[in-house]
Amino acid sequence: MSVQFKVVRRAEPGVAGGGQYKYYASIKRDREVNMRRFVNAIWARSTVNVADVYAVIETFLQLIPEFLLEGQAIDLGPLGKFKVNIRSMGHLEPELVSAHSISNAKLLFVPGFELKEKLSTMRFVKASEEAIPEWMSSGTPTAGESETNQAA
């Protein structure tokens, strides 16, 4: 199966009025696997019942934040690794570095080797879509189009 993408129009960052608009490929994200479908897929490929699959996933979801809040990375083998990264202010002297120097913490996911390999074989297909409005293809709005519609 292929990953569908759509065409999106984006303004030039940091330029008043948007600057020159360009068109980019963007993943079409209208399809999502919910928990029930995911659990049923696991159940269909294993010897455990649906309730046990739910129980294991719920426990997994509870443990991930617990380990991360302890500062531990979680290595899930071929899937990849979850870890917390921080951003901090720089100081001239090491003694000045404290918890107050930390400005941001964020969750990182680093895919494992096997997952990276599989992702490298991904095929992309342009999603069928409605015709691009004339004002989007020309870069200038037609009469009646607002600047709000341009930014979309």
Rank of each mutant, 00 (worst) to 15 (best):
Q4T: 09
Q4A: 01
F5Q: 05
G14R: 11
G14I: 10
G17P: 08
Y21M: 02
K28C: 00
R29T: 12
R29N: 10
D30T: 11
E32I: 13
N34S: 09
N34W: 10
V39P: 03
V39R: 04
N40S: 13
W43R: 07
W43S: 10
T47K: 11
V48F: 04
V50C: 06
V50K: 15
V50M: 07
A55W: 10
I64A: 04
L68W: 14
L69P: 01
E70K: 07
A73V: 05
G77Y: 06
P78I: 06
R87A: 06
S88V: 01
M89T: 12
H91K: 14
E95N: 15
L96P: 09
L96I: 05
S98D: 07
I102S: 00
A105K: 14
K106F: 15
F109D: 06
F109I: 11
V110M: 14
V110S: 15
V110D: 09
V110F: 09
P111K: 04
G112V: 14
E114A: 11
E117N: 14
R123A: 13
V125C: 03
S128A: 05
S138H: 06
G139R: 03
G139N: 01
P141W: 08
P141G: 01
T142F: 07
G144Q: 04
G144T: 03
E147D: 14
T148P: 01
